[in-house]
Design a protein around this nucleic acid. Structure first.
Lengths: 261, 261
DNA sequence: TGGTGTTATTGATTTATGTCAAAACACTCC
DNA sequence: GGAGTGTTTTGACATAAATCAATAACACCA
């Protein structure tokens, strides 16, 4: 189960290459799509002005470090585009990705004042950044925001519990099937597809290393398992980092331990 | 990795044997110790009356079902005494315990309206129960309560992330060492011990089955690992379900993958 | 277009942990 | 106090996934 001792935390290439718009730019909040359960859902015009005033918009290239484990928690982020990976590491370099934050999700909460996790962009990411003190003030002034945040954290906790079941009790095959279904699901709720596509595409912008670190496996096992599912015609690769689920029902059976094989 | 297919969810013996005090009994809130970071921390006299009015006190024997996965989320609980296990299951009976709720902790939040997990008492548990609609009203009226709850959920999320690292990336030995340290830590913060005991006792009221389901191992591996740590004089069993940590530092090294052996 | 570094795949082998089995221990209840 | 039941420990063996090792596919840039 131990991983190869990687060189601990190589410095990130494009860490300071982010673009920032001027603070207080109201447009970015008014234009932001906040219809589907994001943090800013239901916040009124006045609230949006306050939000716009205390947030900045960032555009971050792939592989950017957003948050480093153990550093003081200075900012809170709301993702508007792209995917961020959150992770925790052991001193010898073993790493567990605890989740992927897609558009509409947040990151950066901390109780102790220090980030308990690291966060890095997977692809190009657009995000709103709030400085901590301003954000806390906003929370107290905007009951909608506070309610949305509590709901969002509750969601994250349920997701984390599901992932613990996966990590502790599922086989490699069950893990990979669950992952693909989860990605397809995320894709659909993000796009608001309804009714669900009978053969949805899972967006998989992350590398095998990331998938392995998310599922508690090695890259070889991930690769072998995906190959097996493809051989069995349950999935098919598409262009640009997508995987089409040819039989979501069969995958669901597998993911819940009721599948063949 | 698959577990033996247990018979799915045997009915609980003492499920309806709980004692309930009359609703609106103000005493139980006034007498409750809410000094150390519980949900009711900082709530004023008026707030307490409101809390007392909409909560009931329960005393539950060991092995009681508090919450069943998939059922409608009707209540919210605050634990005041004893330990509760939270878990998720697969159809074939494999189970993952996602956490233990000790005094001062809550359980029962849900976004969807259905519980996403089960909860069962480990030993005799005292808890405050709130009906959902009343609790939501309380949250809106009591800003302190809302803040405490957000903080508590944030804590739980951080804990869940730590547990994902354990489940996905730690060896059996590292898992058991982490577990014992965690239990000793919980014991100390609960009792408010400061400075920390150099040879603390971890309270372990749960069975090997529960420990195994919490760590993503089998009971045999848990047993063997505890035996090994005992043979190495790193721990020693005490009376009533306790384990004394003879060398917390060595255990910490092991838990973070830096230990010998 | 071809070269170079990275990422993914596939194969052969090892190993940590799971599975199966039995003995030791701990309670409870007549 | 001993029979009966459940839990924990220990041992022998099996196996899923890790590790080690090549090769193949891809991406990026000159």
């Amino acid at each position: 189960m131990p991983q190869p001792p990687l060189p601990p935390s190589q410095p990130t290439a494009g860490r300071h290459t982010r673009l920032e718009r001027a603070e207080g730019d109201l447009q970015h909040c008014l234009l932001c799509d906040r219809s589907r359960g994001g943090l800013c859902n239901g916040v009124d015009r006045d609230g949006l002005e306050a939000l716009a005033h205390s947030s900045r918009r960032l555009v971050l290239p792939p592989g950017s470090t957003m948050v480093e484990e153990g550093q003081t928690a200075e900012a809170f982020f709301n993702i508007t585009r792209g995917t961020v990976k959150l992770f925790k590491s052991l001193p010898d370099g073993r790493r567990q990705i605890t989740g992927f934050a897609d558009p509409g999700q947040f990151l950066g909460l901390s109780r102790s004042g220090l980030y308990a996790f690291g966060a890095e962009t997977v692809d190009t990411v657009h995000a709103c950044r709030f400085q901590r003190p301003q954000f806390e003030a906003l929370l107290n002034d905007q009951p909608d925001l506070k309610r949305n945040l509590l709901a969002a954290v509750t969601d994250k906790l349920a997701e984390a519990q599901e992932q613990m079941l996966l990590l502790g009790r599922k086989t490699a095959r069950e893990k990979v099937a669950s992952f693909l279904l989860g990605r397809a699901q995320a894709e659909q709720t993000m796009r608001g597809d309804t009714p669900p596509d009978p053969m949805p595409v899972a967006s998989v912008p992350m590398t095998r290393v990331d998938i392995a670190d998310y599922l508690g496996l090695t890259i070889e096992t991930v690769s072998r398992t995906i190959s097996a599912l493809r051989r069995e015609k349950l999935i098919a690769s598409t262009e640009n980092h997508g995987i089409r689920l040819l039989s979501p029902d069969a995958l669901r059976q597998i993911a819940t331990g009721q599948g063949a094989g």
